[in-house]
Design a protein around this nucleic acid. Structure first.
Lengths: 244, 244
DNA sequence: CGGGCACTTGATGTGATTCAACGCTTGTGG
DNA sequence: CCACAAGCGTTGAATCACATCAAGTGCCCG
């Protein structure tokens, strides 16, 4: 039986029965390919669609009145995204592809159906979404109360840890695949200042860089400097009742 | 029949049947009174409890290594809070009372039970929680990309709008009940600078102040200056299936 | 070969912080 | 009932972190 990308992800945290897997597979029946840079959803678009990101890397963001951009979240394969579409007929945030990507769109009605027919599965989905919420508050605290250097380091650690979940052979070296401007828009900084912070992290021997590739030289120290916590590592869904 | 505080709140957005109301009432069987300033949950506390805030105003926050505090969220009567306790055995954020308050603690197992036995009700709870998530991203964008003045204005508007939902007679004048330091910790600013921003808003005739009371003199202009959107006003739960 | 985009670096500007001082109110114990 | 301490608000001056402006480099791709 084919297994859904999202089921694999959820399966990292909780065991699923065949019926549950089958339900998730329905969410990935359609799929759409995106080239790097393409906008999937524009802010304020009218849409009741949600997505499973199947491959590639994406971001959600908002554009403010003065034209500046704030990246709200980076999205990785296996993520269920655009949950706000459940309650907002007009998208509160835009979404765009950071690399070539494949997404599976499905209507919110399908998620509602899962909620009603497979409550345990829905509970697991909601639980996983809570981890996203906590990561959001981590970033909020980062923007409000930490230095530019810490914020940049935090993005590096976050991206590395998400990527490593998808490729367990990954070590301390990886290619973030983000421009410095994108890192800036995620951290509330200018691209110029991101550049200086990267340089500083390099000078302090916390990271090394080589043509887009980043190597974490002292992960423990970097984690401390960034005030970073891997929220997926501490996730506990063991209290969920076993599947029927 | 007694009606739960949380059912009233949810009832603003979706109609509930008696069975659903009864289930929610169970969540408010116990209650605890808190004096202003008291910490209900400390960061990292081991606990599987969630809460309904029954009366008063509270905040959730984190304290960083350097001792600085970031307020993550203000909480108002009717809010269900500490949902992260679903998946984190150790509280990722602390909670404290900003005024005298009453909370109803209940175990995450009770919410899990609701999820399994009353899926429609749980779906409604999750939907409402999505609005919180979007407010969080609004604040993230505010911290990353807007001026100090906008952030302070945004807090004023947010608190006023939440309070007005509880007292429909409230006009443009209200008592936030927050110190300037608290506003600063919510906006990523120092108390000193919050003071200056309030003064500036006053000089620009956007607000008036008198011994703790704030009056919004030009709400439209203030809303624009703050980049503020009332996310509860745009909430749409009409797609929920009717209750059985 | 040429144009564009990302990256890099220096000089300068500025919004917010930090430090310091003082007044006002509130609550508390003598 | 008063004296005093503590917390909050206010204001000015100096400083700092990050933004802005500007110029130049390397590289990929058409």
């Amino acid at each position: 039986m084919t297994v859904s990308r999202f089921a694999e992800r959820l399966g990292e945290f909780v065991s699923l029965c065949d019926k549950e897997r089958a339900a998730l597979l329905q969410l990935e029946e359609r799929q759409r390919t995106l080239r790097r840079g393409v906008t999937l959803v524009r802010e304020n678009d009218s849409s009741t669609e949600l997505f499973i990101l199947k491959s590639g890397m994406m971001m959600s963001f908002v554009i403010l009145d003065d034209g500046s951009r704030q990246i709200l979240r980076f999205m990785f394969p296996g993520d269920m995204v655009a949950l706000p579409s459940l309650v907002y007929p007009n998208a509160p945030e835009a979404m765009a592809a950071l690399s070539d990507a494949v997404v599976c769109p499905f209507d919110r009605a399908m998620l509602a159906q899962i909620a009603l027919e497979q409550p345990r599965l829905f509970l697991a989905i909601v639980a996983l979404d809570q981890a996203e919420r906590v990561m959001l508050t981590d970033r909020l605290a980062g923007l409000g109360r930490t230095s530019a250097k810490a914020r940049v380091a935090s993005v590096l650690l976050h991206v590395r840890n998400r990527m490593r979940r998808l490729d367990l052979t990954m070590g301390n070296s990886f290619v973030p695949g983000l421009t410095q401007e994108e890192i800036g828009d995620a951290t509330g900084l200018t691209a110029v200042h991101v550049n200086r912070m990267l340089r500083q992290l390099e000078e302090e021997q916390l990271i090394a860089r080589d043509s887009g590739r980043v190597t974490l030289l002292d992960e423990a120290k970097l984690t401390r400097a960034a005030n970073y916590v891997d929220r997926l590592a501490a996730l506990d869904l063991s209290w969920l009742p076993p599947s029927s």
